[in-house]
């Protein structure tokens, strides 16, 4: 039946994007050809994305291609989780907490990580980042608001 599971899933993914875009943009006025409204361009594009999605799905039935492997969840979970943790920590706790946090959480993404190595490296990198971004480049990023007030 389906000769290329990867393509079938890819096409379905595009259809989902098109569907979400059409739904989100449903109440935007389309306007007229003479005066295009804010809804016209997104709607036409969403429909085109959907059409391409259908084409890819059809192709998946006709041409054999790659299968779908099992997706590893560990790396996305820890890498993206680390970034989100950074987002939450950077304002209230500052770089001095957020930087080691993102490195430590992120490091769990790889099975090769050695805890002690990451702890030492994280400490060194934090000092380096504070020195580079805060003091050398003067970026307005909080260092440790709870400790030194900025």
């Amino acid at each position: 039946m389906i000769k290329s599971p990867q393509d079938a899933a890819a096409g379905a993914f595009l259809l989902a994007i098109a569907g979400i875009a059409l739904w989100l943009g449903a109440d935007l006025p389309v306007g007229t050809v003479r005066q295009l409204g804010p809804g016209m361009f997104p709607r036409v594009l969403a429909i085109l994305v959907g059409v391409v999605g259908v084409m890819i799905v059809i192709d998946a039935f006709l041409q054999s291609g790659e299968g779908l492997e099992r997706w590893p969840l560990r790396a996305p979970l820890f890498i993206l989780g680390a970034a989100i943790a950074f987002g939450f920590a950077v304002r209230p706790l500052g770089l001095i907490v957020a930087a080691p946090l993102v490195m430590l959480v992120g490091a769990f993404a790889s099975p090769e990580t050695r805890i002690r190595e990451v702890l030492i490296f994280g400490g060194v990198m934090t000092v380096f980042c504070v020195g580079l971004f805060k003091y050398a480049l003067g970026l307005p990023i909080p260092v440790a608001p709870w400790l030194i007030g900025y």
Binding site: I79, A82, A83, F86, G87, V90, A98, A99, V102, M103, L104, G106, A107, A109, S110, E112, T113, R114, E117, V118, F121, G122, M125, C129
Partner: peptide, 12 residues
Amino acid sequence: RLMFPAILVFCC
């Protein structure tokens, strides 16, 4: 294994 945490923190 050392490079990607560093890249991650720079990106953030």
